[in-house]
Simulated scan of single mutants.
Amino acid sequence: MSACPLGYGGDAKDALSSKGSESPPAELSGKREVSTIPSADGSNFLYPSEKQFFTSATAKGHELDPQDMSMVIAIHNAVNERTWQDILKYEKLHDCADPKLIRFLGRPGELTPKARLGSLFGRTLPFDRHDWHVDRCGTHVRYVVDFYDGQQSPTHPVSIHIDARPELSWAGLKDRLMLWWRG
């Protein structure tokens, strides 16, 4: 699990709250950033623009302040970059020099077995979950990712803990143990 401290003044979920849908304001940027995450077609994934993110989030019933969009996008992109780096730690255990992200699926509200077990022992539930599907030189591998609010500090008012790991399978358990053993 890694921490991703970010310089945004508020809780990671503050920018999203349940309300209605709106049209994207004209002042939102349509510019998309290129990620470092390679896709199955060989190009790198493009992050959503402010306008795309706003449209998608409001269509799901979230209310966003358009003035916060540049920071929301910065947080979104930084968290995804850190998630990919955490996945690459597992991928380095294998002989594939060029793993690629096939797709990812947001599964908010669905708990992973680890998150469910942790909650039984008093751990806070994650605020989001994703499944990332990776092409490991022809082998399909699924990673599960839990996102938790982290400990805020004066220098990092937002901190997100990312728990990215291979799915709960024999091969996934083997990778988890191998990475743990290597420290």
Rank of each mutant, 00 (worst) to 15 (best):
D98T: 12
N80D: 07
H161P: 03
D41T: 13
S29L: 01
F53G: 00
Q52I: 06
G7H: 13
D98H: 13
V141P: 00
D163R: 07
L177R: 11
D98M: 01
W84E: 02
E33S: 15
P66W: 03
E63V: 09
D175I: 04
P108G: 04
L105E: 13
Q152P: 10
W84R: 00
K51M: 02
W132L: 03
S56Y: 10
V145Q: 02
A26W: 12
D128R: 01
S2N: 11
P126W: 07
T55H: 04
S21T: 15
I160Q: 03
D68Q: 15
Q151H: 13
S39T: 12
I73L: 09
G118E: 06
C96A: 12
W84N: 01
R142H: 08
G20L: 04
M71V: 08
K92E: 02
L46D: 13
S159F: 00
V158Q: 15
K174E: 05
L64H: 11
D68I: 01
A26Y: 09
T58D: 04
G183Y: 02
A12S: 14
R103C: 00
D131E: 15
P48N: 03
L64F: 11
P66Y: 01
D41R: 13
C96Q: 07
H140P: 02
R116W: 08
L111H: 12
A171H: 06
L177T: 12
T124V: 07
G7L: 08
R107F: 05
D175G: 11
S70C: 00
I37S: 02
A15I: 04
K92T: 15
S35K: 10
I37W: 05
G183R: 13
K174N: 08
D163W: 11
V72H: 04
D41C: 10
A3T: 15
L177P: 07
I160A: 02
K31N: 12
T55F: 03
Y148L: 05
L101M: 15
R142F: 01
I102D: 10
R136L: 06
L105Q: 13
A115E: 12
A15F: 09
A57Q: 15
K19M: 05
A78R: 10
L177F: 15
P25E: 02
W84M: 08
F127C: 09
S159G: 02
G30C: 08
S169E: 03
G109W: 01
E22I: 03
Y90T: 06
L88Y: 07
A171I: 06
A40F: 09
A15K: 06
H156A: 15
L16H: 04
N80L: 06
P99E: 05
D86Q: 10
L173P: 06
T83N: 06
Y148G: 00
E91P: 01
S169P: 11
I160F: 04
F121N: 05
A74E: 11
R107S: 14
L93A: 03
H130K: 10
D149M: 07
D68P: 08
L64A: 01
L168M: 10
S23D: 12
H94R: 12
S119C: 09
W132D: 12
A171D: 10
G106V: 03
R32W: 05
G7W: 05
P48D: 04
Q85G: 06
R32D: 03
T139S: 08
E91Y: 07
W170E: 14
P38E: 02
S21L: 05
K114R: 14
G109K: 02
D175A: 08
S70M: 06
D175N: 14
R123T: 12
H130Q: 13
W180N: 04
E91K: 09
D95A: 14
G138Y: 11
